[in-house]
Write a protein that binds this DNA or RNA. Structure first.
Length: 492
DNA sequence: CTGGGGATGGGGCCC
DNA sequence: CGGGCCCCATCCCCA
């Protein structure tokens, strides 16, 4: 009796001691047939077809069983709604469930119950449907919640699909922004998974992927996950796209190539390599942008304002600031931590999370008025300004010797200022500038004017550095721009 | 090619 | 909760 190749494989696997028993001999014969069949694919079908067909069929069967609640040995309670599933499927799909099912104190129990308040039943439905079908039903309205839930459940493949969804939305946004400054995107799209196992392929890991989160699980529904999540994000995915995954190559290349990324942009983020390359200088706009009309500039300003507003909107409506129990303190009270919706990072304070989010959104609210470089934090701006533009370091730049306010002569190089000792000054033959001018136009209060003033729109005129008014190159020691007068600056 | 230093970014935590 | 400080990691430039 001959077996089919699939049966042969199964038989062979179940009878490892091939040849020592009848079953083993039968398996061996069947396996021989399989080899023959595979060598003549036109007579049979190749193994890849078998595998795919088998996987599809198996997944379909499992999904049917789930829907009919057949053999379900796992209950998941999400905000009061009960979901039945198979623990082996959940185990294979989610790092969270892997930990839940393997690291429990009592080994594998007969039934497993998990409860979540960190996401909605609708979100978990999307996740569960994906687990059992490979189809991820994403839309602009649920992508953040799904991504947050996937992050919570440690499903890297879903996270990556969500990132791709957001990135694709970004592409659409950028292209449309380039053409008619109009933001829109497709409302829904569906991603198909190639495999149910969550991906650990580093290439699929987004730039915001970090180390696995701490074990945040419970095997007792009474110890449900504490936390909260917005129920109605109402988020424009285009806004999310503009703010999400700033390091994505798509974002960088498309935006930068089109000259759309501007250091003046509150959401501006330097690409990984560009970030370093542009240090100490001013990122110029594309040459052709110099010839853009005033009308176009106004459109650009309007677009930036829209971006800033959307950033604020995102922060205001940001639902997935998920409070999670990080660990228990000495009094056995849960210590709440806040989880980033874009990665697995958790922080103690919501304010820290907001600060952390800037590394995902690319928001840089603190522009340097001297060189237009933008920073995510005021302290970074201040540090940069003191170091680069105020020559606060009492070290000779040439010979590295210690100098004082008196002996360290300030040398100006564009907007950059540094100190040199008397000997080096004479050796180089350059001129120092009076110390008095250091705290003149470049004093900090003026510097910081741009932080809040940027939203007024007028100061943005100075952000659009072109060949004619490149501050970094031409302003020299006369950094008058610190005397922020929006109306005057607009006219310059 | 390599190591040191500068500039920058990001996390933790205190005030 | 924002501001600020400290610390560390990373990247880049330069000798």
């Amino acid at each position: 009796m001959e077996n089919s190749p699939v049966e042969a494989l199964a038989l062979a696997r179940s009878a490892p001691v091939v040849g020592r028993c009848a079953v083993g001999r039968r398996a061996l014969r069947s396996l021989h047939c399989l080899v023959v069949f595979c060598r003549q694919p036109q007579r049979w079908f190749n193994t890849a077809d078998i595998t795919v067909a088998h996987q599809n069929n198996l997944l379909k069967q499992l999904n049917q069983q789930r829907r009919q609640e057949l053999f379900c040995d796992c209950s998941v309670l999400v905000e009061g709604q009960l979901f039945r599933a198979h623990r082996n499927v959940l185990f294979a799909s989610s790092g969270y469930f892997r930990m839940l099912l393997t690291q429990g104190p009592d080994g594998l129990p007969d039934t497993v119950n998990a409860a979540f308040d960190a996401f909605t039943p609708e979100t978990f439905t999307v996740i569960l449907d994906f687990i059992y079908s490979g189809q991820l039903d994403l839309s602009s309205h649920n992508v953040i919640e799904v991504m947050s839930a996937a992050s919570y459940l440690q499903m890297n493949n879903v996270i990556n699909y969500c990132k791709n969804f957001i990135k694709s939305s970004l592409d659409i946004s950028v292209k449309e922004e380039d053409s008619d400054r109009c933001l829109s995107l497709s409302e829904t799209c569906s991603f198909t998974s190639g495999a149910g196992e969550d991906s650990t392929d580093p290439q699929q890991q987004g730039p915001c992927s970090v180390s696995p989160p701490p074990a945040l699980w419970t095997r007792d529904s009474s110890l449900s996950q504490s936390g909260f999540i917005g129920k109605d994000p109402e988020q424009d995915a285009s806004a999310l796209a503009l703010k999400t995954n700033p390091n994505s190559p798509t974002n960088e290349v498309s935006a930068d190539a089109d000259g759309l990324q501007d250091p003046q942009d509150p959401l501006y983020t330097l690409p990984g390599s560009e970030r370093r390359r542009s240090r100490g200088g001013t990122k110029r706009r594309a040459p052709n942008s110099n010839r853009s009309s005033q009308h176009e500039d106004l459109d650009v300003l309007e677009t930036r304002t829209q971006k800033a507003e959307k950033a604020e909107e995102l922060y205001a409506t940001l639902p997935p600031i998920v409070g999670v129990i990080g660990h228990f303190n000495k009094d056995s009270n849960p210590v709440m931590r806040f989880k980033c919706p874009f990665c697995t990072h958790t922080v103690k304070r919501k304010a820290d999370l907001k600060r952390h989010l800037r590394c995902h959104t690319g928001e840089r609210p603190y522009p340097c008025q001297a060189c237009n470089k933008r920073f995510t934090r005021l302290e970074h701006l201040r540090s940069h300004f003191e170091t680069i533009h105020q020559a606060r370091k009492l070290v000779c730049r040439k010979c590295k010797c210690q100098v004082t306010e008196e002996t360290g002569h300030v040398v100006c190089e564009g907007t950059r200022r540094y100190r040199m000792c008397t000997a080096c000054i004479q050796e180089v033959g350059c001129e120092s500038i009076p110390i008095d001018s250091l705290d003149g136009p470049l004093d900090e209060p003026a510097l910081l004017l741009g932080v809040n003033g940027e939203e007024e729109g007028d100061t943005k005129r100075s952000w659009m550095v072109n060949d004619d008014d490149d501050l970094a190159e031409d302003s020299g020691t006369d950094l008058i721009i610190q005397q922020v007068d929006d109306s005057d600056e607009e006219l310059q």
